[in-house]
């Protein structure tokens, strides 16, 4: 991204998602905007302080300036801000919340926040989430996934560990089973509150392979600071390998389209 000099010099964490570039360029523009305003104001301010200190200007002028420039500048700032809103912020947001990717390529993940971990569920090839039931929730099945539901047969569940193939869109359904959490991956420029009682989808396309941190960005209790996951963005092949292995370990009965014997009852992949 060429146009990120200012925020990069402020040390912004590198972006690794498609829409992140749009967000970064907006951040960049805003910081230039702020910098220019600040420098403009400060130069005027400090010049004034120096020029009109008592020593240099023993008697004050009752009227002061009669210029109308300030009003025009303030109007200009407002117009610029509205342009930023209309031309950048609103379209970016609309694409975030209204224009979800579709098609077979899209990976669907449910991220359920709980004190203090992220329980993740991948739909598998059928693109459908298996039924989750409150009465099935146990320590080893934190999602309460009902494996007897046919839609659940090929579902993968993990805790705190997420893998994605690079350049494939991913839709994450964010929810919570206790208090508010926030599913945030700073490098992917995504964040979404996990509101108990609602399911809120969010999407992004990772464009750089690597390991990134999943942060819980909403105070959720004592161990909020330890509620941390990892996202591994890897090649299609690596992802497939990981998926099949982990799905089997997590108790899926259909892997890669073929039925397999269910894994041991623990069901959950340890990190």
């Amino acid at each position: 991204m060429p146009f990120a000099i200012l925020i990069e010099s402020l040390g912004i964490t590198p972006n690794a998602s498609l829409h992140g570039y749009a967000i970064d360029s907006m951040l960049e523009m805003l910081h230039w905007f702020m910098l220019i305003l600040f420098v403009g104001w400060s130069s005027f301010y400090f010049y004034t302080l120096w020029r009109f200190q008592r020593k240099k200007s023993p008697r004050a002028n009752y009227v002061g300036t009669t210029s109308h420039l300030p009003t025009k500048l303030e109007g200009g700032v407002l117009v610029l801000e509205i342009v930023l809103l209309m031309a950048f912020a609103a379209p970016i947001w609309a694409s975030r919340v209204d224009q979800f990717p579709t098609g077979p390529d899209v990976i669907h993940v449910a991220a359920v926040g709980q004190q203090f971990q992220w329980d993740l569920q991948y739909t598998g090839a059928d693109g459908k989430f298996g039924q989750r039931r409150i009465d099935l929730v146990t320590g080893s099945n934190p999602l309460g996934l009902d494996r007897s539901d046919p839609a659940a047969a090929d579902d993968l569940t993990t805790v705190n560990e997420m893998h994605l193939p690079v350049n494939k869109p991913c839709i994450i359904n964010v929810m919570s089973r206790d208090v508010i959490h926030d599913f945030c991956i700073p490098n992917m420029r995504i964040a979404q509150d996990a509101m108990p009682g609602s399911v809120i989808p969010m999407w992004f396309v990772p464009v750089k392979t690597g390991t990134y941190e999943i942060v819980c960005a909403q105070l959720c209790g004592s161990n909020h600071s330890l509620m941390r996951g990892v996202l591994v963005v890897e090649s299609e092949a690596d992802y497939k390998k990981w998926f099949d292995e982990t799905a089997k370990l997590s108790g899926a009965t259909v892997v890669d389209g073929k039925p397999v014997a269910p894994a041991d009852s623990a069901g959950i992949v340890a990190k």
């Binding site: 009109f52 008592r54 200007s57 004050a60 009227v63 300036t65 500048l73 303030e74 407002l78």
Partner: peptide
């Protein structure tokens, strides 16, 4: 963003008030 403008007006007026003063 609209609300940032009146704040700015107040702050700017304060700064401009210094112009021509005997500080």
């Amino acid at each position: 963003i609209i609300i940032s403008v009146p704040t700015m007006v107040i702050l700017s007026s304060l700064i401009i008030s210094l112009w021509g003063g005997a500080i």
